[in-house]
């Protein structure tokens, strides 16, 4: 019996002494930290993806607390909701940002873009891109080894075995931008998600001249500029033989899709499918009328001059 008591006494004593030591050490090495950092970190998504440009959620929280406003700190994963919470904690105002989503800008599926050689190295887009232009005739398109899929921490990307191209799962994509950095061809762009997920984009980045681009891929943008001429909102520009749709200007009329000769422009999220033929006919009719009106106007001015 005595032994038991002695044991308990000794162990308790050791415990007490150690607790005291721990307490003293903790006091001595106490780091005074802004408690708001912890608060901010708590409302962060905790993915530590680095999409905000900081090393992780903690680093973001530290930076946000230090910053004079939240203009340069935005968590793409948490979005406006998280940022509102952060702003509430820190007493800042936060501007609403349009939600973004990753968009793969290549439509060089196996059917559209035949392979011209066989790649036999390590299955990594970066390795492949370092070695050569790729196993198809297009030097700008998707290499198909899935570096973007590996880079995505949210499981939002997957390779479609049929097309050989990555597919974005909109519901999972947080627009952290990891895939845009992983793609050696720079094919993935963060674009505005659009109202109810409706958006239109050019599904190609081939800078070759029309015939060469077309030869490599049936669905290539050939830089013909028809879309730019059709667009009534000045949303489309053509540079380096490639069209680009500015998502801030696009009014989602889908006329460019109807007019594109190669089908390089893609849409998503629209409730009704586009009747290409009818739209095209309507546009051509409108353009004809415009031309006639212009000619008539020119005529009248000429007549005026004559008179």
């Amino acid at each position: 019996m005595n032994t038991i008591w002695t044991t308990i006494a000794i162990i308790s004593l050791i415990g007490l002494v150690l607790a005291l030591v721990l307490y003293l050490v903790a006091e001595k090495f106490k780091v005074v930290e802004d408690p708001r950092i912890d608060d901010v970190e708590k409302v962060m998504p905790g993915a530590n993806c680095g999409g905000c440009g900081f090393a992780g959620c903690r680093a973001f929280a530290e930076a946000a607390v230090k910053a004079p406003n939240l203009d340069n700190n935005f968590c793409p994963v948490g979005g406006n909701e998280t940022m509102a919470k952060v702003a509430a904690i820190l007493g800042y105002e936060v501007k609403e940002k349009a939600p973004m989503v990753a968009v793969v800008r290549c439509n060089g599926s196996c059917a559209n873009r035949p392979t011209v050689n066989t790649y036999g190295g390590f299955a990594s887009c970066r390795v492949k891109a370092t070695l050569y232009s790729g196993d198809t005739g297009c030097a700008f398109g998707c290499l198909g080894c899935g570096d973007c899929v590996a880079a995505c921490q949210f499981g939002a990307l997957s390779m479609d075995p049929e097309t050989g191209l990555p597919v974005v799962d909109e519901t999972k994509c947080t627009a952290c931008g990891a895939c845009t950095k992983a793609c050696p061809k720079g094919l993935i762009e963060l674009r505005a998600k659009g109202p109810r997920g409706m958006r239109v984009w050019v599904d190609c980045r081939n800078k070759d001249k029309g015939p060469a681009a077309k030869k490599a891929c049936a669905a290539a943008c050939i830089g013909c500029g028809i879309c730019a001429k059709t667009c009534r909102h000045e949303a489309i520009t053509v540079a380096d033989n490639i069209a680009y749709i500015d998502y801030n200007k696009c009014k989602l009329c889908r006329e460019c899709i109807a007019m594109c000769p190669t089908g390089a422009i893609h849409e998503s999220g629209f409730p009704k499918p586009l009747d290409k033929e009818a739209t095209k006919a309507r546009i051509l009719e409108r353009q004809k009328k415009e031309r006639e009106a212009a000619a008539a106007a020119a005529k009248t001015t000429e007549e005026k001059k004559d008179a």
Binding site: T115, V116, N117, T118, Y119, G120, G121, F122, V127, T130, L131, Y132, D135
Partner: peptide, 8 residues
């Protein structure tokens, strides 16, 4: 013929 391309 499709050439095989791989790094050295």
């Amino acid at each position: 013929m499709k050439l095989l391309v791989s790094p050295n």
